[in-house]
Amino acid sequence: MFQIGKTLISEEILENAFVCDLTACKGACCVEGSSGAPLETEELQTLKTIYPSIKPYLRPEGIRAIEAQGTYVKGSDGEWETPLVEDRECAYAVFENGVALCGIEKAHKAGATSWKKPVSCHLYPVRVREYTQITAVNYHQWHICDPACSLGSHLEVPIYKFVREALIQKFGEAWYEQLETVAGEHLKR
């Protein structure tokens, strides 16, 4: 572990490789698991505000789930998350050619919203946990992402580079530049 400002970062995000391989996993991260995507408090109002703009890009099942449960829900752990369709996939997931994709991101690409998607999704496989004095930045290893680890290794893309845009969104450009410096020094050893 190493520290940048008030963040404590796992060396695993420097040492492990990752590049999403949707042809292999079929977007399983949007479907598997027992809860929705984690949401930050600041994202709750954004979801509520943009819902009318992204609704045309969502599946009828997702729309029904959102309109029944709300644009976000409180999970069993007490944290905010996206609602699920019948305790299965994220209500914002859409399917194209058998692959789960983010309907919010689809709306973003079409110009319907400036918001790309929840930062937790954008950061994956990095998970951020806020504590009183420090923020932990860790690698979340999940077997469904084994193909992404293989592809990342083949392409030689470390996790921190794969999620560069999301890390900058979350922590800022200066923080990311410090991360790159630390990574360079760490990987020389």
Rank of each mutant, 00 (worst) to 15 (best):
R189S: 15
G111W: 08
L47D: 07
A68F: 03
V19E: 10
A93Y: 04
E96N: 11
C90A: 08
A65G: 04
P56G: 12
N97C: 10
Q141F: 09
P60G: 11
A91Q: 01
K48T: 12
E96S: 13
S114A: 10
I134K: 12
T23F: 08
Y160S: 04
E11R: 09
L123P: 03
Q45Y: 12
Y139T: 02
Q3P: 01
A68Y: 02
E11M: 02
L101I: 01
I168K: 15
Q169C: 06
A68D: 13
A24V: 11
K109D: 15
L179I: 12
F18K: 09
R164N: 02
C121Q: 09
A37G: 05
K109N: 14
L22K: 14
K117G: 01
E67M: 07
F171N: 05
L44G: 02
S153F: 02
Y131F: 15
L123T: 09
S53C: 09
V99D: 09
Q69N: 13
C20Y: 14
E81A: 14
V94K: 04
W175S: 12
A174H: 13
W142F: 11
W115I: 01
C29A: 02
A37T: 14
E42F: 12
V19C: 03
E81I: 02
I144C: 10
L167W: 02
Q69G: 12
E32N: 04
I168Y: 06
D87T: 06
E32W: 07
V163H: 05
S76W: 11
E32Y: 13
E40R: 11
E165D: 15
A68W: 05
C20K: 03
E177I: 14
G27H: 04
Q69A: 15
Y131W: 10
E61W: 00
A28L: 12
